[in-house]
Design a protein around this nucleic acid. Structure first.
Lengths: 407, 407
DNA sequence: GTATTATGTTGCCCTAGCCAACAAAAAGAA
DNA sequence: TTCTTTTTGTTGGCTAGGGCAACATAATAC
């Protein structure tokens, strides 16, 4: 330590040397290909501003690395020599894991965004973290056997219904399952021998909708996701996911919007989660367990005055909550997922009216409310993005794991 | 249009060609120097990861451009040849403008962060935008005459107590002054012949505290600023300012936290701004106009039970509001400015207790509450950052205006 | 004074991206 | 068909910005 100089404040940006330029360009290209599915070389050229010959060089490096494939256009459009099409490869895959209170779901997703398999393993009520890890590891083992020999594994992404400390992949609190301070990441990593990345389910859903779904073309997004475990949220600010200091950011379900006395799953009262409760709806409809589809049918076909009032109360509470998020984030789009879509479909006009009442005119004037588009694949696609992210950041440097273990 | 390809989704990142590398490196260096005041060449070397010789080359280009100066260390520390010190130059300046309901404040700030002059011009009640522009332009003209001949002007930054559409520098709504849809930026730009950048006052304050004040070393920040015009807010997410789609983001004062019936300055009820009101305090202390310092003395020296209750109510409301922001942003630090500092100083323990009650344990465990550090210079320093930002982004490309007009 | 350590300076090298020329593949016009 | 026009891929050489190594310089340590 030569000088007691503060580590040069938050100018995160490092200098670029030549290698970083190459790395950056490879990364930008691969990201574009990953997000857009299949793109022509010519559109990559115009989008990046790089030279034709440079694109050619970079793409062939990505081909050699196994991340992308090139093919000729099947339907040339316009004059001129048709541009070669570049697609993300299905060779590179990631596993997704979603532990819930009654089941654990495991899936395989390719870098091209295809969900190859999913497997839902029912669990005894309130599984321990160790149970879930074991279930997941076993399923991954089986799914891995089904992969082709030349496929490469980027890692495992885990979506947790609870708060996750992302720096060390520890589940801080998953209230529904009763998990406290569980090192889920290192447990699963040890069990599978693969790199594991853990994050909150709603944050992951937000990222998925932002990358591939209803928020695809926006940089300012608010996302609300309601499942059986309460209401989670996420936000995209300036094109990047809101994470916060430790990764707990985006807990939009736990924001106080009123004086209610019932508490939410985390013990807070007056929050959005405490006022918009799936269980209350199930109870009113005299249902026990129900899928979102079943509940949606009930809500859509509702005739009783009593349940109508409940639904409207929930819509109003949701609108009040969203209006706060509009004032805070000034988003371009608000994406609703889980059974919140049913509320939106029931009376979108009422919801929007409520949002406009509680929000500043300027902030609300251009906002759009949408339902999520990814449906049941939401968390599978989203969780896979976690390991993929590392690959996309530095394609040439990241070492992938071969699908079949060496003996 | 060869192919109907969507403009290649939100991968904002362009490719880097060689010129961009140079530009980027110059920008990174100048930002570090601007934020840290004076730094040694050796610390620039280690912070950027670039080679000694490269730093030498880049710094001398910045010297030649007039942005920085080099000097020898006055007090060498440690073994080895002492490193040259690099400082931001006072040659480059920006003007700051802060229109308020009863006065307009204008200042000159150098790239090194020195506030050379400030000028507070009292205004008749409820000045029109044109009045404020004229006052500001006149003051800028005068201040400009006092500059040295070789000084360079980066532009003008304006802090508005209201909502600003940043894309075209239009004041959407400044409720206290009654401005609606005023093109303040283009008006002032026309009057001065300088580039003008307009933004919300609280957002600007947030940026200033994040760059130079209480939040200097953090990347996740929530900022609350209470002046005579209500409560404004700002947030730093992942090291960059939250702006939202149009620039209205960060309106933390207008977030609903309770059922109160009194309305805030924007007509919303139950919001933080409607519950924590400066006027209520002034009224309780039987004061009319008062500076923050005067009010602070009254609050600190308070003995009456009645006013104590009011103060505590406000602290509690503030705590409730902040707890929501903690859940949303999971910040490292919360910075309070304006008379909110007085509330913090009055009973910090009570405030923190309230925050912890309303927030998730995990999100709140490491959060720190602080008073702002920049005091009366907050908005002057902050507003100047707007024009400086453009310079810092591309030092070699941005054309600056000479201090003395050519005849 | 000498050794050690850290930094500034200089000249040369290396490589990633650019450029220009040419080839190839489509559409349009004769 | 044939020729032109337009767009893209390919190739070889060029260029500039950052790395590197050797040397000079200025501080501390002994």
């Amino acid at each position: 330590m030569s000088k007691p100089i503060t580590p040069l404040q938050r100018t995160g940006a490092r200098g670029s040397n030549r290698d970083l330029v190459r790395q950056h360009n490879l990364s930008v290209l691969l990201q574009m290909i990953h997000l857009n599915g299949t793109v022509s070389r010519s559109s990559l050229t115009s989008a990046t501003g790089l030279n034709r010959s440079t694109i050619s060089d970079l793409v062939s490096e990505l081909v050699q690395l196994g991340f992308v494939t090139e093919s000729e256009t099947d339907s040339p459009t316009g004059v001129g020599r048709p541009s070669l099409m570049v697609s993300a490869s299905n060779r590179v895959v990631a596993f997704s894991v979603h532990p819930e209170v009654d089941a654990t779901t495991i899936g395989v997703v390719t870098l091209a965004g295809n969900v190859l398999h999913t497997k839902r393993v029912p669990m005894p009520r309130h599984p321990s973290a160790a149970d879930s890890v074991q279930t997941a590891a076993k399923a991954i083992e089986e799914l891995r056997e089904e992969l082709d020999k030349d496929q490469l594994i980027a890692g495992v992404g885990v979506a947790i219904p609870g708060q996750v400390r992302v720096e060390d992949n520890v589940v801080r609190l998953a209230p529904q399952m009763g998990w406290i301070e569980e090192p889920f990441g290192s447990m699963l990593s040890q069990a599978t021998g693969l790199p594991v990345f853990v994050d909150n389910d709603a944050s992951i859903g937000c990222m998925a909708e932002a990358n591939f779904g209803a928020a695809k073309d926006f940089t300012e997004v608010v996302f609300l996701y309601a499942g059986s475990g309460g209401i989670g949220g996420g936000a995209i600010v300036n094109g990047t996911q809101l994470r916060g200091a430790s990764g707990y950011g985006g807990e939009l379900g736990h924001v106080r919007i009123g004086e209610g006395s019932t508490k939410d799953y985390s013990g807070l009262s007056g929050t959005l989660e405490s006022l918009v409760r799936r269980d209350d709806l199930l109870h009113a409809f005299k249902m026990f367990a129900a899928t979102d589809e079943e509940l949606d049918l009930e809500i859509a076909g509702n005739k009783s005055a009593k349940t109508q009032k409940l639904i409207e109360q929930q819509i109003d509470a949701l609108g009040t909550g969203i209006s706060s998020y509009v004032n805070i984030f000034n988003p371009e789009v608000i994406v609703l997922a889980g059974f919140l879509t049913s509320l939106l479909n029931y009376d979108a006009e009422r919801l929007v009216r409520n949002i406009k009442t509680g929000a500043l005119n300027a902030s609300a004037e251009r906002v759009v409310v949408r339902a999520g588009e990814l449906g049941p694949n939401l968390l599978m696609i989203g969780a896979a993005e976690l390991p993929f992210h590392r690959v996309l950041e530095s394609p040439a440097e990241t070492k992938l794991v071969s699908a079949h273990k060496k003996r």
